[in-house]
Amino acid sequence: MTELKTLRGKVWKLGHNVDTDLIIAARYLNRSEGEYLALHCLEDLIPNLPQKVQQGDILVAGKNFGCGSSREHAPLAIKYAGFSCIIAESYARIFYRNAINIGFPVITAPDAAKSIEGDSIAEVDPKTGKINDISQNITYQGEAFPPFMLEILSSGGFVPYIRKKVNGNA
């Protein structure tokens, strides 16, 4: 297990109901490598976004983020585009599970998601759900992950977590 580090980056602000077709359109689903999907991440919403993202940047979104398809390509595209985590008012169920399963932190924090502004700098502690809006100097308490989800995240995803169980604690 690796220690989950505090994440820090510039905020990209999105609205409600950002669906999986917007995150990664089906026209790119004939491939599944994260690096390829990242090139088209959110492109119908913010053209050329992947060129503009700095490693560690943070997506802040409204309600029902990731609604629609079960495509794991969606969190993969976001992760490989360089984002370090998402803060949203709420998530669609499958997207949420998929993100945790690939070891990508998705924090539920309605207050923070509403108040944090685009282009500001934020800091997130995935262990506790604490969010620090550095630009406005306000802290928020997002929902903390239950212990087993934290374990999945710090194992680097559901498959490494299961692999440990299957092969003993190797």
Binding site: S70, E72, I94, N101, F158, V159
Partner: peptide
Amino acid sequence: ADSHTCTYGGLGAFSTGVGSTDLAV
């Protein structure tokens, strides 16, 4: 691993969509 897996509830089953990793497990 398809969000419309919920269809089979029409037959009185519990069925739900998951992603590829959940499916692998």
